[in-house]
Design a protein around this nucleic acid. Structure first.
Lengths: 210, 210
DNA sequence: CGTAGGTTGCTAGTCGGCCAACAACTTTCC
DNA sequence: GGAAAGTTGTTGGCCGACTAGCAACCTACG
């Protein structure tokens, strides 16, 4: 199918434009700033197209979250190589976020904003974010377990507590960056996290250069 | 003036009731749920009283933030004793938050919600929270410096980075707790933070019981 | 010519804030 | 001491601004 029918092209182009505009607006002022009129104007279309394309406001948010998560997952998978020790696979999480935030700050900021917005009255969004974070903690805890098994992480480490703390670090850092991007150097902070977490989890039998 | 005139009593009672109701609503569904009608209904008054008392929506939020911060500051000051090493004074921050969250979860949840809401379109709230966090980081960094000077904290610790990381821990933990109070044990998590930060900052010359 | 993409007029609903009126209270004055 | 005069607390109707979503319409493509 060399030419995917110009109609489909039009649809895809407008869809991407609408999602990009929505991401920008959310990144700038949260969900409250994401009005249909503002999206249409910024994307170069009309306000009515949003409902026609995504059905409703919730549908738009869903599509945006799915798109961003998908992009992040692709990047993390690209970093992670098969056969690596669990510790390295765990650290790919930090590295992937750092890389994604540098390359595509607009979508990353929008996703962060949505995470914090999930504390608001939108029950569906809250539920989705709660499940996502639970899954993330479980994922991290499993990696810590695997690291204790393969010797890349000290056996005295508590997987559950580590997962909670690591997620807290990532979210709390994101929060401070969102609140005051000028004063918070996100990339440098990720390096500190990388180093600190590395020290805290390091297995004692590994050679250490203090 | 033994009897502070029944009018003043009425005013204080209604003011407290309005602030309590506002805190509850914010804790439950963020600023968006804090409508004048909802406040009045929950507090047992009319919606018109809010503007009459606080002038505007922003005025109400200001009053609420001031009240809660004041209460927290009192608690932290009560814990901190003069002459303590800087490390102990630093840790009183964690302890005070933990204690406050246990004793008065409603106001603490409301304050946390306002912090995360500050990423939204409200410029005044954002500015206030940004300044607050900057001050908090500066405070922590100064305590770390003092700890390096009095020997209670290892000299290899970077004050600025430590401040950023510690605030990130506190905020990220609060976020996960707000999002999913059932799955996140806040008090236990504060204990982990206390221990982890203690290990990370500990001066090497102190006797350590692993 | 039919269908899908895109637009615009419209509706129902919500919100913050203003304002005039009422009720409770305090002070002044005889 | 008690009533009149003045003040303060509280109420609820109203208005303008804004929103999401719908439905009829126009336009471009197949």
């Amino acid at each position: 199918m060399p030419v995917p029918t110009r109609q489909a092209e039009r649809t895809e182009r407008s869809t991407e434009a609408l999602l990009d505009a929505a991401a920008e607006l959310i990144a700038e002022g949260g969900l409250a700033s994401m009005t249909f009129a503002a999206i249409g104007e910024r994307a170069g279309y009309s306000r009515g197209l949003v409902t026609a394309r995504f059905g409703s406001r919730a549908g738009l948010v869903n599509a945006l979250v799915s798109r961003t998560w998908g992009q992040f997952h692709v990047r993390r998978a690209a970093i992670t190589q098969a056969g690596q020790p669990a510790f390295a696979r765990l650290m790919s999480l930090v590295t992937a976020i750092r890389q994604y935030a540098q390359e595509d700050p607009r979508n990353v900021r929008a996703l962060f904003a949505l995470m914090f917005e999930a504390l608001g009255p939108d029950e569906a969004l809250r539920e989705r974010m709660a499940q996502f974070h639970q899954a993330m903690r479980d994922d991290i805890a499993a990696l810590v377990e695997a690291g204790r098994a393969d010797g890349s992480i000290s056996p005295s480490i508590d997987p559950q507590a580590t997962a909670l703390i690591l997620v807290a670090l990532l979210r709390g850092l994101a929060y401070q960056w969102m609140l005051d991007p000028v004063s918070v150097d996100l990339a440098a902070a990720y390096d500190v996290i990388h180093e600190q977490v590395g020290n805290a989890l390091a297995a004692p039998d590994r050679s250490k250069s203090s």
